[in-house]
């Protein structure tokens, strides 16, 4: 089971929207059984980011964890969604 973290500044607003969309996407792609979603706020996760296989964020993250994090804002604007899901899928499929 892959661990997918979705985070935003408060862990309430935009991560909730992103989570809803990602859940649906996982379902549509028959991946629901392979991925467990976690929702949180950035400040709670910075120290344990390596516990997750995939990380989506709608907020800026510190430079030292930047490479690990995929920008989730496309799910809010509708612009660049396919490219974003390609990155997510690559991380889910990574051995």
């Amino acid at each position: 089971m892959k661990k997918l973290l979705i985070m935003c500044g408060t862990g309430i607003a935009t991560s909730t929207v992103v989570k809803g969309k990602v859940e649906q996407w996982l379902k549509d792609n028959n991946l629901s059984q392979e991925v467990k979603i976690y929702q949180s706020k950035v400040s709670d996760e910075i120290g344990r980011i390596d516990e997750y296989d995939v990380v989506l964020s709608t907020t800026l993250v510190p430079n030292n964890i930047k490479d690990k994090v995929i920008d989730g804002v496309p799910l809010l604007t509708g612009i660049g969604v396919d490219a974003m899901y390609e990155k997510v899928l690559a991380e889910i499929k990574r051995e």
Binding site: C8, G9, T10, T59, L60, T77
Partner: peptide
């Protein structure tokens, strides 16, 4: 919060 986590969306 707007300083730490901006909320402008380029729609």
């Amino acid at each position: 919060r707007e300083v730490a986590y901006p909320t402008g969306l380029p729609t």
